[in-house]
Nucleic acid binder design. Structure first.
Lengths: 137, 137
DNA sequence: TTATTAGTCTAGTATTTCTATAGACTAATA
DNA sequence: TATTAGTCTATAGAAATACTAGACTAATAA
């Protein structure tokens, strides 16, 4: 299950992708329309900014905007930034790998092999879908 | 990410599938060989018993055993029992569905549609893999 | 220059879930 | 009846989640 943070973040990004004309999009506009707690959303958008997904402008006429073309941003990237690893186990994560304390030999672990298959399966879909795809669904 | 409970549970099931001759398998044997905290494992196996995956026998010569053919038990079933929903969002879960508070119209929600695709993609793999497959990997 | 708008940043907190552990109890077998 | 092995209740520490409060800073426009 994705955290609420991730869900809110994705909804906000889809909203921004849909409504990004020349002007940046207000936090409060997203918060109102998507019914996301405003203070929580602030933190989430700030996080997306720190990860280079969003840019922002302060003051009147300010708000958030995408830094890249929605076609260039994959669902895999967004979920990784917001939620962390896509893999079901740390020992098969490509970006957040961690060895299992209990496992004496990863190469002989049935679970490791299986979860690597699951990871590849999920990744193949999440990497081919972009924010553009999500916004037009 | 799967919880440790789920990881331990799957490892234990694979162990039982591999070592099930005529005799049931001891909790302590699994605990030792797979390095799973014994008391925790007890609770996990009990849970699997309550869900009709495992049977048990008390006293000498006792232990846990599979109630069905490993070929009949899918990875999807096991992860659902141990970890809960496979879906990334409650609103696309087939077995643990829950409506989103914030979403006014699910049919118009981009995220809902996308996550339903992800669910189907994952499910297609997890339903075709059985415990037998996991144990022989 | 100052009022207003709107994002930034530092804390902190309540709740829930996860990961166990303790210990008494019950059932089966030799 | 002693031993083995699973059952049940109950609890507790740690970590993650889901927020909220409030002071601060930057940008714009009158």
């Amino acid at each position: 299950m994705l955290s609420k943070k991730t869900k809110y973040g994705l909804k906000a990004l889809i909203y921004i992708a849909k409504h990004s004309g020349t002007e940046p999009v207000l936090i409060s506009e997203i918060s109102d329309n998507e019914r996301i707690p405003k203070k929580f959303l602030e933190a989430i958008l700030l996080d997306l900014k720190k990860h280079g997904i969003l840019g922002s402008k302060k003051g009147k006429g300010g708000g958030y905007y995408l830094l890249k073309d929605p076609n260039e941003i994959t669902a895999a990237t967004l979920i990784r930034v917001l939620d962390g690893p896509l893999a079901m186990l740390p020992c098969v994560s490509l970006n957040y790998y961690e060895k299992c304390d209990d496992c004496p030999d990863e190469a002989k672990c049935n679970l490791n092999k299986f979860m690597a298959q699951v990871r590849d399966n999920t990744l193949s879909l999440l990497q081919q879908k972009s924010l553009y795809d999500l916004a037009k669904l």
